[in-house]
C-alpha cells in the first residue's frame, strides 16, 4: 500500500489524537444532530473552525481534493437535483425542468451540511484508532439492556478498520482496469458496473483472510478495552463542541 488515505488512522501530531474517544464520539453525534436545523451563519462559523482542524490534518489541499473529489461530485449532483426539482424563481430553462434560485439555495444548504458532517466523521476516523472507537462504543452501550456491547463494539471496530481496505481495493482495481483500457469505454454506468463486481469480490476475499488472521491468533470478542482516561485536551474538545452546538441550535 504505497499511498495511504487520509481516512486511515495513524498517530499524528495533532492534539485531537490524544482526546478521549468517548468525547470525540459524543461531539460528533452532538454536532451532527445540532446542525440539522442550523442557519447559514452558524454553519459558516462551524465550517471555519472545522477547516482549521482540517488544515492541521491534511498535508495539502491537493491531497484533500484528490481523496474527496468523488464525494464532492456527488454533492454537486444533490445541489443540481434540488435546483431542478424545487419550484421558484426560474434562472434557466432546461427542457421540461427549470433551474430555480430557491432550489439551488436549498440544495447548497443540504450539501454544505452533509460536507461538514462528513468532514467531522473523517476527522474522527483519522485521529482515533479502531481499538479506541471500539472501547468508546462499548462504554456507551454498557447500560443498554439486551445488547452485548462487546460483540457490537467488535463489529464496529472491524467496520472502521475495513473502510480503508475497501477504498484501497477500489483504487487498485481501478488502476488495474485503467491499465487494461477499461476506462476507454465512455459509458459511466458500464464502467461502474465493471468496477463493482471485482471490488466486491476482493473485499470479501480480504474479509476472509482477515478472519483467518484473527482466528489464528485466538481472537475472542472478550478482548481488553482500551484504557480510557481524560486530560486537558478533552476539556478543550468538549467545551469547543458545546459552544459550537449552542451556536448551531440558537441560529
Amino acid at each position: 500500500m504505497a499511498e495511504l488515505s487520509i481516512f486511515t488512522y495513524r498517530p499524528r501530531p495533532v492534539w485531537i489524537v490524544d482526546c478521549d474517544p468517548r468525547i470525540k464520539l459524543a461531539a460528533l453525534a452532538g454536532l451532527s444532530i445540532c446542525s440539522l436545523g442550523a442557519g447559514w451563519t452558524a454553519l459558516a462559523l462551524v465550517t471555519v473552525v472545522t477547516s482549521i482542524l482540517w488544515l492541521r490534518l491534511v498535508p495539502s489541499l491537493r491531497v484533500l481534493w484528490n481523496q474527496t473529489k468523488y464525494f464532492i461530485f456527488l454533492l454537486a449532483l444533490v445541489v443540481l437535483a434540488r435546483g431542478l426539482l424545487t419550484p421558484g424563481q426560474v434562472l434557466l430553462e432546461l427542457g421540461p425542468l427549470d433551474l430555480t434560485a430557491e432550489g439551488l439555495a436549498g440544495g447548497g444548504y443540504i450539501a454544505w451540511r452533509l460536507l461538514v458532517i462528513v468532514w467531522w466523521s473523517i476527522i474522527l476516523t483519522a485521529t482515533t484508532a479502531a481499538a479506541q472507537i471500539r472501547s468508546a462504543v462499548a462504554w456507551f452501550l454498557r447500560p443498554v439492556p439486551l445488547v452485548n456491547e462487546k460483540v457490537v463494539a467488535t463489529m464496529i471496530g472491524l467496520l472502521v478498520r475495513f473502510i480503508p481496505v475497501i477504498l484501497q481495493q477500489v483504487r487498485e482495481t481501478m488502476a488495474a482496469q485503467q491499465a487494461r483500457a477499461v476506462a476507454a469505454s465512455s459509458n459511466p454506468f458500464r464502467r461502474a458496473f465493471k468496477l463493482i463486481l471485482p471490488v466486491v469480490r476482493r473485499v470479501f476475499l480480504s474479509a476472509d483472510r482477515l478472519v483467518w488472521a484473527m482466528e489464528a491468533r485466538c481472537f475472542t470478542p472478550d478482548r481488553p478495552f482500551y484504557h480510557l482516561d481524560r486530560g486537558p485536551a478533552d476539556w478543550l474538545l468538549a467545551s469547543g463542541a458545546v459552544v459550537l452546538c449552542a451556536a448551531l441550535l440558537l441560529s
Binding site: M1, R10, P11, A129, A213, R217, C218
Partner: peptide, 22 residues
Amino acid sequence: TESQIVGETVRDEVAFGPENLG
C-alpha cells in the same frame, strides 16, 4: 504478510495475540 496484519500500529499488531489470551 499483508493479510496477516490486523493491528493499526506495529505495537497494536504485536499486542493483538496476547490481548486475546486475556
